[in-house]
Design a binder for these strands. Structure first.
Lengths: 339, 339
DNA sequence: TTGTATGCGTTATCAT
DNA sequence: ATGATAACGCATACAA
C-alpha cells in the first residue's frame, strides 16, 4: 500500500494528471471547470492524497519553508522567540527549519548552506554579530532575511528587536528613583550590536538624569554569561570603585553578580542593587528575585516571521525595522542604597 | 550565475553525468576508475558543486533527515536533549527537523504527517503519553522511532530515559539519612509513564527504608507545572497531614511548593524539605537553592540519536532501551527535620 | 569501467 | 477547459 500520487488521483477522477494538479492547487483552480475540480478534490479526499513537497520543491524551486538560525537553543531567550516564529509561519502555511550554530561561524556557514540547498525561502537570523561577512554575502545573493535582536554593520536589513534604549532607561530611572547615583554597568560583548547599544543607552540615561558618566564604572563582559558577569564584577570591585547599583547587560550577567556576592559576603540589595535584562524564566525564584527588563520574546518572534513573509511576498518593499517596547519588572534585587 | 548541477560537473570533467554521480558518491565510488574519480572531484570542487538534496530525496526516497518531536521547546528540559541529538546526527551526516507539538494531539499528527511527507528516515519522539494511538499507527506502518523519556503502553520501541527509579531512590535515601520519616510525594500526571514510574519508585523506596507507604501523603498534579505543584501542596497541607519533606515529581512542581511556602509563611528547609527532579538550569540561584536529581539530558539526546541511527541501519535488530544513571545534587532546600 | 535510458512526483509550457 | 510533453536534479538498472 504505497502512498497515493497525483496520477492516482487523476486516474480515479478520470482526468489527466495536469488537470488534477491544476484542480488541487488553489492558485490555478480557476483554470479548470468547476465540476471537474470537484471530482478531482473528491478523488483526492477519498484516497487521502497528500502532495509530495519534495517533488513540488524540485519543480518549483520553492519549499514553503524558512530557516531559523539560532545561536543556542539552550539560552532561554530563544525558545519563546522560536515559538512566536513558528506560530505565525504555520498560520501562513509555512514551516520553520530550526538550526543551532553554537556561536561557531564555520558551523553557521555549513548550516545555512544546508538550509539553502533545501530551498528555504528566507532566513530569520538571531546570531548576527556586528561584523558578519556571511550575511553580507547572502544579502548580495538576494537571500531574503530578517534579523532578530541584532543589527549588522553596513547592512540595511529588516529587523525586529526590543527597544533596548527604552529598557535601559527604565532600569536607570528606577535606580535613580530609589536614590542611587553611583551606578555601574556590566556591559555585554562589544562585538554585538546589543552590547554596544545597551552600553550607549546606559551612558545616555545617566546623562539624562544629570549623573556623571564615569568610564571607570563600566566593564565589558567577553560573553553574555554568568561567569563573565562574575569576572567583570570582581574586576570592578578590585579597582576599589564606589557604586551602589549595577545595571547588567542581561540576566545571566546579573546572575553572575550573585555568585560574587556569595563569594565576598556582599548583601544584595542592601549593599548593591542589581537590575538584569531579558526576563529569563524563573527569575522570581532566585535569591534575591531579580529586578529586570521584560522583553516580549514571543511577540518578537511573531513579528520577525511577519516581516519575512512580507519580504517574500513583496521583495521590493523597503526594509522595515520594528522595535518592541520593554517593561520593568521590579523584584527584590533593587532597593534604596544603604547610606 | 545559477548553482552548478551534476551535469555541469560532468561536462567540466568530460564524463557522463552518471559517471560523475558515481564518482561523487562515496558508496559507488569504487565502481569508477580512480583517475576519473579524481577528475570529477576536482571539477566539483572548482565549481563549488553541492548536491541538491531535494532531487536526491525524490529519487531515493531518503533524506538524511530525522524528525524530532518535542512537546514544548520552552521547557528547559528539552533544549539540551535536542543539542545532544543534533550533535550525534550531524556527525553521522544526518540533519534534525525539530517540531513543537505544544502538547496538542491534533497539532502533533499534522506535524508528523508533514515530517513524513518530507521523507524523514525516522522519528525521535519526546511527547509520548502512555496512550498514544498515533505512535501505534506509525509503528504499524514501519516508521522507525525512538522514544525519549517516555514509554508507550503496549509498544516495544527503543527508548532512552533516565533511570527514574534510581533517581527517586537517591532522593528518598538522602531525606532518610537526614532523619526524615514522614515524606510526601507530589506526583506528576498519572497519564504519563514518567509520572506513574516515579510514583511507584517512591512507594518502593519508602518500603525499602522500612517506612510506611501512606497513600494520604501522595498527591497527583494535573500537569508538570509550578501552578499544579502549588495546588497539590495546598491540597496536602489542607488535609492536615503531617510530613517534613516533599519529593516532587519534577523541578517545576518543587518550585510550585516555593510559592506556597511564601503564601503561608513556611520556612524551607527548616519546616519542610523539598527535592526536585531534572536539574533545570539556575536552580542554584533559587531561594533556597533546590536539591534535585540531575539527569544527563545532553547524553540522553545523543543516545537517542544513536539508537535511531542503529534502527535505520539495522531495522531487524531487537529494540534496545537504555537507562541513564542520575545523580543527586544536594543544595539548601533539604536539611534535618526540625524536631 | 563507462554510457544509456528511465523515473522519482510535480508543475509549466505548449498545443488542442 | 483539458491533454500532451517536458523538465526540475539526481541515481540506478541495464547495456556495452
Amino acid at each position: 500500500m504505497t502512498t497515493p500520487t497525483l496520477r492516482d488521483v487523476a486516474q480515479l477522477a478520470g482526468v489527466h494528471p495536469a488537470t488534477a494538479s491544476r484542480a488541487l492547487n488553489p492558485q490555478t483552480r480557476p483554470l479548470v471547470n468547476a465540476e471537474t475540480a470537484r471530482k478531482v478534490l473528491r478523488a483526492a479526499e477519498s484516497l487521502g492524497y497528500q502532495p509530495n513537497p519534495i517533488a513540488r520543491s524540485l519543480k518549483t524551486a520553492r519549499s514553503s519553508t524558512v530557516g531559523v538560525v539560532i545561536p543556542d537553543l539552550t539560552n532561554p531567550l530563544f525558545p519563546p522567540i522560536v515559538r512566536g516564529i513558528e506560530d505565525v509561519l504555520t498560520t501562513a502555511g509555512y514551516n520553520a527549519w530550526i538550526v543551532n550554530t553554537d556561536n561557531d561561524a564555520g558551523r553557521e556557514e555549513a548550516l545555512v548552506e544546508s538550509l539553502r540547498s533545501r530551498q528555504v525561502e528566507g532566513l530569520i537570523v538571531a546570531t548576527a554579530r556586528r561584523e558578519h561577512p556571511l550575511l553580507v554575502r547572502l544579502h548580495d545573493q538576494g537571500v531574503r532575511m530578517v534579523l532578530v535582536n541584532r543589527k549588522v554593520d553596513g547592512l540595511e536589513l529588516p529587523s525586529v528587536a526590543a527597544d533596548d534604549d527604552a529598557g535601559v532607561a527604565l532600569s536607570v530611572a528606577h535606580l535613580v528613583a530609589l536614590g542611587h547615583s553611583r551606578i555601574a554597568h556590566l556591559a555585554g560583548p562589544q562585538g554585538t550590536s546589543t552590547g554596544v547599544n545597551r552600553a550607549r543607552a546606559f551612558r545616555h540615561a545617566m546623562i539624562d538624569h544629570g549623573l556623571p558618566d564615569d568610564p571607570a564604572l563600566t566593564v565589558e563582559c567577553g560573553y553574555w554569561s554568568e561567569s563573565e558577569g562574575a569576572l567583570a564584577l570582581r574586576k570592578l570591585l578590585d579597582t576599589g570603585a564606589e557604586f551602589t547599583a549595577v545595571v547588567a547587560g542581561n540576566d545571566l550577567i546579573a546572575l553572575g553578580c550573585y555568585d560574587v556576592f556569595a563569594e565576598r559576603g556582599i548583601e544584595c540589595p542592601l549593599q548593591i542593587s542589581v537590575v538584569g535584562f531579558n526576563e529569563m524564566p524563573f527569575l522570581d525564584k532566585m535569591r534575591p528575585p531579580l529586578t529586570t527588563v521584560a522583553i516580549p520574546h514571543y511577540e518578537i518572534g511573531g513579528e520577525a516571521a511577519r516581516l519575512l513573509l512580507d519580504t517574500i511576498e513583496e521583495p521590493e518593499r523597503h526594509p522595515r525595522s520594528v522595535l518592541m517596547a520593554p517593561s520593568l519588572v521590579v523584584r527584590a534585587s533593587t532597593a534604596r542604597p544603604a547610606r
